[in-house]
Nucleic acid binder design. Structure first.
Lengths: 222, 222
DNA sequence: CGTTTTTTTGAGAGCGGTCAATGATGGTGG
DNA sequence: CCACCATCATTGACCGCTCTCAAAAAAACG
């Protein structure tokens, strides 16, 4: 029901190539292209020919089980890189959460560069290591936290990635939030409403939330 | 209640140094030392001076919340490396699941080597990347799978890491399994019993399980 | 302004958690 | 070698959080 095969990647390999600063101090030949909302950037199991960097917009990576259950592993914001793989193929799918502009560089070019340039290799490793750290925090959230704690953490996480002081923007749908937090959309919605009733947040509209009292986020009594 | 501060690491820095093959083709000065069951190899927040490799036995890495909730992020078996960090300090604790022998090398030496040797850098990145891949599968398990599926996956995972054909050995306690799977020990125990009743497995003893019918592992009806 | 999609809210059910008791297991000392 | 004790694993009864199903409300879109 969510499967929109709107992806339009016919030109992946035929775009005009220019230099892309893929990581700090690492420029590689590549190109930039737009993806529309909910289109697939790459699919699980597809050959990992390219590495990706978000120029603008938001991307999600996820895995889908046979029966449609989805688990989003991460959201990527402008400047973030994703889709760098050790194996021959992508272990997750990547989709555009919003309209996005994405820079692509050849994975082979990236690996070649890291083979020559220790600083680039270190940077690549640092990126992966950073992702691993995030994934481990995500494990704690999914394995050991209540719905309230998950939503609260999510809001703080999103807040931390934005400069806007006390208003968090949520570019993704409730479905995405739920599939990131291992909950249902109903539980996410109810939890947000409950937080608002307690005065911890204000739902400006469904994509913009003001955090009023951080201490009141963690739900305790009813 | 689980906090055994049995760690005996007084000699971490004063052991006689020899060459350790830390990763394939990467030999570094280091040393090997034993840890007893349930002792701490390193703690969350401690400076990440060393990188570690399991020689024998099993290690767990985990994070503990204020109220005692534990989430185990991974188990490490002989040959596995762990504790390599991008930051100044360890993001997880590491503890001995069984009596273990662990090789230690200085993180600084490892990074210095990867800065000189592209092959070593690539190998380190591959290791981290591999871990990330595992963590992402773990995310799906914790976020989207039922107790039955989690336990079944765990058994298959453990089976896959052992050569013994149809009998899986579980060196860790039920508590460890539960904290890895985001469940309680009661649920783990009940699920295993239920699998046995269905003829999918046989509980030889509480640390040894025979997988009889892989297809029957996934619990469906009652 | 009507249609479709997304979000919110409600009512009820079920899976897994909590609390508690029983049964194994393993280590220790008599 | 066995009795004793401590720890760990299993089982049972019950409860509550989150899911499911359903409908209403709000937002997005043409």
């Amino acid at each position: 029901m969510l499967a929109l095969d709107t992806r339009y990647t016919p030109a992946k390999a035929t775009k005009s190539s220019k230099l892309v600063e893929f990581m700090p101090g690492v420029e590689l030949p590549g190109f930039s292209m737009p993806f529309e909302r909910d289109s697939e950037v790459f699919g699980e199991g597809e050959p990992a020919d390219f590495a990706y960097k978000v120029i603008s917009g938001v991307v999600r990576t996820l895995r889908v089980l046979d029966d449609g259950r989805r688990q989003i592993s991460a959201f990527y914001f402008p400047g973030d890189i994703f889709g760098v793989e050790i194996g021959e193929e992508h272990a997750n799918s990547a989709e555009a959460v919003t309209t996005v502009e994405i820079a692509l560089v050849r994975q082979s070019a990236l690996l070649k560069r890291t083979g020559e340039n220790p600083a680039a290799a270190c940077e690549l490793w640092a990126q992966t290591s950073q992702e691993l750290k995030r994934a481990r925090s995500h494990l704690v959230l999914l394995g050991r936290q209540t719905a309230c704690e998950r939503v609260a953490n999510f809001l703080l996480q999103m807040s931390g990635r934005q400069n806007n002081d006390e208003s968090v923007s949520l570019p993704m749908s409730r479905t995405d939030i739920a599939d990131y937090l291992g909950l249902t959309i109903e539980t996410v919605s109810r939890t947000l409403s409950q937080m608002e009733r307690k005065g911890a947040i204000a739902l400006l509209n469904c994509k913009h939330i003001a955090i009023k009292r951080r201490d009141a986020l963690e739900c305790s009594e009813h």
